[in-house]
Design a binder for these strands. Structure first.
Lengths: 118, 118
DNA sequence: GTACAAGTTAGAGTCCACTCTAAGTCAATT
DNA sequence: AATTGACTTAGAGTGGACTCTAACTTGTAC
């Protein structure tokens, strides 16, 4: 899979893909003898996972750490799990907070409603 | 209430407070005749509301719009309500997505657990 | 009245996550 | 063989939201 296809499949621009490689999120991407990148299905899966972490607010720095561990092989599984557990806890806390915020927002909206109809 | 007190109460640094004033989130802050700002309780409430919106991911630009409407008085209540309703909907959608992401994260963690214990 | 902490301004710097540019090479099509 | 589009690199630029600096003035405590 070439750059075009990969960027279409993952939804990242080619710029972003190269950026991700530069900062170490993507490692060991194959190359043609002329230097063009060749992406595999595994790369797609991995980027999808990166995107998921990103969408839950994990900073790229932390995703990098995960990538680092991942590259070091199976013996880092526990560390990776701990990292994910940590993030899951963060996410849960944020969800709780956001739910609260949302409730207050609805209260305010309700208040506006009475204000308007009066 | 002077700058120090205000920044302690709201949790914003004085730099951020001045920045918020500069970009129009805080308006009509009183001044002593020597130019120092005097904040009121209403300012605290308002900043808390700004913080709430910010914490739910509303960009400052949009909060500015709200501030603008707010300054124009009661006849903008409907507009403000619509803005909040819009944001509430956005937030709800994001919460739903994040909940899904969290679930997948837990799945992955569970997978790591079986991997490790095997 | 003298320290010195806290306030003021305009504007520069920082961090994150891209996003784009320039200058050049490679691949596919006619 | 020539055009066109996609690829490569290093590095500059962007936008959001601060965060800090410099140079100066004011307020408070002794």
């Amino acid at each position: 899979m070439n750059m075009k296809e990969f960027s279409l499949t993952t939804g990242l621009t080619s710029h972003t893909v190269r950026y991700y490689e530069k900062i170490g999120l993507l490692k060991n991407i194959e190359r043609t003898k002329s230097g063009h990148r060749i992406f595999s299905h595994a790369d797609v899966i991995w980027v999808e996972f990166i995107t998921r972490l990103k969408d839950t607010g994990m900073p790229l720095k932390q995703i990098q750490q995960y990538a680092e561990l991942r590259e070091q092989g199976d013996h880092t599984a526990t560390d990776r799990m701990l990292l994910l557990e940590d993030h899951a806890a963060t996410l849960e806390a944020r969800l709780a907070l956001e739910t609260q915020h949302l409730k207050k927002l609805h209260d305010k909206i309700a208040y506006y409603k009475t204000l308007i109809s009066s």
